[in-house]
Design a protein around this nucleic acid. Structure first.
Lengths: 228, 228
DNA sequence: AGTTAATTGAGAACTTTTTCACATTATCGA
DNA sequence: TCGATAATGTGAAAAAGTTCTCAATTAACT
C-alpha cells in the first residue's frame, strides 16, 4: 500500500462496499472474497481489491475478507465512527423532504436545523427539526456543531448561501441547486444536479440506436452548422 | 467530427452548457467564445470545444459560438425538442417532493403520474398529479405515454420496481434507492445515491489534511489489518 | 509434511478522459 | 488587400481510471 491520492470515484465505491458488507454481516456471513462480493453486488473484483488496498491490507490470501472487520474499517475510513450534524438551507419541498429522508438518519447523519429566508416559516417545525432564520446560520451552526451543509435553495441564491456557510466554517457542502458553484480549495463541494441527470436520460432516449449501456451510442453524423 | 461513442460525462456537460447558454441568451448575448464560457461558469475551454465538436461544427473560428444557435443545437442533441412524461414510483416524502420539484418542469419534463403500493394513498392528489396503484403501472404508463420512470421507493423494493417499469417498456430510469440495481442493456439507468454522496463528504471531513479539492488527500498510512 | 485450491495485493497493460498546442479560418482596421 | 488578432477544431500528449495477470500467501485435505 502506498500513500497516494484517493479519487472520489474510489470514496464513492467505499460507501457502496460498506453497504454491501453491512448486508452480509446482518446475514451472519463471516468472510467474503472480492469475487463473491463482485458477483453478488454487480461490482468488479479487481477494483474492489485495488480500492481496499489503498487503505491497508484488510484481506487474507486464500480466504478473503472478514466481513465484520472490513465493515469496521470502512466505517472508520469514511469517518462514520463519529456523528455528523447536517444543516439544510432552504425549507421548501426538497429541503423538507431531505429533512425527513430516512437515508440521512440511517448512517451517522442527523439533520439538526433547517434555514430559510422566509420570515413566515421561521420557528416552524419539520418533524422535530426547527426552521431558523438564515441570518442566524453562523450562530446556530456553531451552537449545534453543524459540520455538513445541504443547499436546497433556488439556483440564483446558491452561490451566496455557499459563501455564507463556508464563511461560517463549514467544510463539506452538498448542493442541489442546478448551477455551477465555486468555492475555496479547503471546502468539499458535491453537487447533485437533478436537471442534468434527467437531461442526460433524455439524451439516451433521443439516440436512434437505443443502446443505453455498453453498445455504441453514436451522435448524429455529418456537419450541422447553420450558416449565418 | 467523427462518429464515436459519447460518454455520459460528456452528455452531463452538454446539459450544463445548455444551462449556461440559456442564461447568456436571456441576457441578450449574441456570441460567446469557449474561453468566456469557461471563465464565467468555471469550466474548461478545451473541454467545451471537444465536447461540442463531437456533435458538429457549431463554432466560427475567430468569433466563437452564436449563443441562440448553440442553445438550439444543444436542446436538439439532448432530446429536449420534445416533451417527456415522467412517472414517479413511491409517493413518500422524496417522491412527492420530486413531483413538485420546480426543476423537473423547467425543461421539458412533466410529472404525469405517481404510483404507490399503499392502498390508502391511491386516488389522492399531489398538486395536480394523481397517485395510482402500482399494479396499474403498465396501463397508466401506456395511456399517458410515460417515457421516464423515477424510482423513489425503499431499497428492498427497488429491483422489483425496476423490472416492472422496464417490462412495461420504459427505457430511461432514474433511481434514488440506495442499492445496486441491474437492468437490461437497452435501458438507461441512472442512480442518484444520496447516502453515498453524504458518506463521500464524510470521508473528506475525516482526512487530516482537510484538502478537499486538488491538493493531496492521503489515506492513513501503514498496515492496518487486525490479526484474527 | 506435502499437495492442492483459493484468493489477495500489486505491477503492468489497457482504456478512457482531460489537457495541451497549434494549424486553420474568420473578422477587423488601415 | 494585407497584417494582426481571435478563437475554433483536432491530433497528440498527459493524466486518470480500470482490468488483467500472476507471484505470494493461507487454509484444507490427505
Amino acid at each position: 500500500m502506498k500513500a497516494e491520492k484517493i479519487s472520489e470515484l474510489t470514496t464513492n465505491r467505499m460507501s457502496i462496499y460498506l453497504r454491501c458488507v453491512t448486508e452480509l454481516a446482518a446475514e451472519g456471513t463471516k468472510t467474503v472474497s472480492s469475487d463473491k462480493l463482485a458477483t453478488r453486488f454487480h461490482l468488479n473484483s479487481a477494483q474492489i481489491r485495488k480500492d481496499l488496498a489503498y487503505f491497508g491490507e484488510f484481506g487474507v490470501r486464500g480466504v478473503g475478507y472478514y466481513v465484520e472487520e472490513l465493515r469496521d474499517h470502512l466505517k472508520k475510513i469514511l469517518g462514520l465512527n463519529k456523528e455528523h450534524c447536517v444543516a439544510i438551507i432552504g425549507a421548501g419541498r426538497l429541503g423538507t423532504a431531505l429533512t425527513d429522508y430516512y437515508g440521512f438518519s440511517q448512517t451517522n447523519f442527523t439533520v439538526a436545523a433547517l434555514f430559510d429566508a422566509d420570515k413566515s416559516k421561521i420557528g416552524q417545525m419539520v418533524g422535530d427539526v426547527e426552521i431558523f432564520d438564515i441570518k442566524d446560520f453562523a450562530e446556530v451552526a456553531k451552537r449545534d456543531k453543524i459540520d455538513v451543509a445541504v443547499i436546497a435553495v433556488p439556483a440564483q441564491f446558491a452561490q451566496n448561501v455557499l459563501e455564507m456557510v463556508t464563511d461560517a466554517g463549514i467544510k463539506a457542502v452538498m448542493n442541489f441547486a442546478p448551477t455551477p458553484l465555486k468555492t475555496r480549495d479547503d471546502v468539499k463541494l458535491k453537487t447533485i444536479d437533478l436537471t442534468t441527470s434527467l437531461e442526460s436520460l433524455s439524451y439516451f432516449l433521443a439516440q436512434p440506436t437505443g443502446a443505453a449501456n455498453g453498445k455504441g451510442v453514436k451522435p448524429n453524423s455529418g456537419k450541422m452548422r447553420i450558416k449565418k
